[in-house]
């Protein structure tokens, strides 16, 4: 668990604080997506968690321990860190970059070699193809994968990821997000994930922490944020289409009316698809409902009425 208590940071010479009295908890095994406009203090918060920046006031605890009591270099070796600009060492090969922290921790070479192979494979790279290459010989996507592999090297329970997929095109980004979420299902790491893209935050975050001008504006699950934006800033960030986004967060099987019998005539969607997918199918084919299947087996139906009611209820929770 990562816990920030009333943390503030004023950089020397700066007029206003970059981070103002932020309190935040990231539970074990959860991803907290830190989102907000450029310059709102996201990177500063991450850097206060691994002591690259010392808080002006307040405290930070990792697994209940005050980080100010730890040796900063040892602390950092135990926290996976993916920096915003990737920051691979240009004079080291891919495998040397990935081996950085294991070497600092004096792992035996045999174990390091095994670990490198395992990691490169996990992040979806061809070990033999890339291990001897230098960073300048890699594509942006490959570099970001290696940035992630390097952070995972000693299997740290806590990870700080600063726009880890920021420097690639949208298609590669979607793939990296999916792959990472899949890894996280088994890793169950405690992660602070910075992004300035609300869609990415919705997708990656178990919780979302929205920042603006150094303040923490709202902290909650994606659904809470969509359903009850704390103020107009959050509302703007979430966008006009928050109803649709809510549907993206819920599976068809959750909303459908179960129906054991019948055939999949007309249009159908899969039970594990998002409700947004079902809506798209309805709109595209101008129908009022779709059949829900699990593989080929019909399990229910989802109607336009149900979707409308769901969005309306979720949206009005804010009022109530």
């Amino acid at each position: 668990m990562i816990e920030l208590q009333e943390v503030s940071k004023t950089f020397p010479g700066a007029g206003a604080p970059a981070v103002k009295r932020v309190s935040l908890q990231v539970k074990s095994g959860e991803i907290c997506a830190l989102v907000g406009p450029s310059g709102c203090g996201k990177t500063t918060i991450l850097r206060m968690i691994n002591r690259l920046v010392e808080p002006s006031s307040g405290s930070v605890f990792i697994e209940g321990r005050d980080i100010m009591k730890a040796n900063p270099d040892h602390l950092r070796r135990g926290i996976g860190y993916v920096i915003q600009q990737i920051g691979l060492l240009p004079h080291r090969t891919v495998e040397e970059n990935v081996a950085l922290v294991p070497r600092l921790l004096k792992w035996p070479e045999g174990r390091i070699k095994e670990r490198i192979e395992e990691l490169l494979e996990k992040v979806g790279l061809d070990t033999e193809e890339v291990r001897k290459k230098y960073p300048y010989q890699l594509s942006g996507g490959q570099m970001q994968r290696i940035g992630v592999a390097r952070a995972l090297a000693v299997d740290p329970p806590v990870m700080l990821m600063d726009e880890p997929f920021g420097a690639v095109d949208p298609i590669v980004r979607l793939r990296l997000q999916d792959e990472f979420l899949k890894l996280q299902q088994s890793f169950k790491k405690t992660i602070c994930f910075v992004t300035h893209d609300m869609d990415e935050a919705m997708k990656m975050g178990d919780k979302i922490a929205i920042m603006n001008g150094g303040f923490l504006v709202q902290h909650g699950t994606p659904r809470e944020i969509l359903a009850q934006p704390a103020n107009s800033f959050v509302q703007d960030l979430v966008g006009e289409d928050r109803g649709v986004k809510l549907l993206d967060l819920v599976r068809v099987e959750t909303l459908m009316l179960p129906r054991e019998t019948g055939t999949a005539n007309g249009r159908s969607v899969q039970a594990l698809d998002s409700a947004k997918k079902a809506l798209e199918v309805m709109l595209e084919h101008n129908v009022d409902g779709v059949t829900v299947c699990r593989e080929k087996q019909v399990v229910g139906i989802l109607t336009w009425e149900t979707i409308k009611t769901y969005v309306h209820q979720a949206g009005s929770e804010a009022g109530g």
């Binding site: 691994n50 602390l75 950092r76 860190y81 920096i83 691979l88 060492l89 922290v101 600092l104």
Partner: peptide
């Protein structure tokens, strides 16, 4: 960026100096 990454991985200031900055 490179220095920040080196520090962030837990290199000591001396290691950052000799293994990164100097090289």
């Amino acid at each position: 960026d490179v220095k920040e990454a080196a520090r962030g991985m837990g290199m000591t200031p001396w290691e950052v100096f000799t293994q990164v900055e100097l090289l």
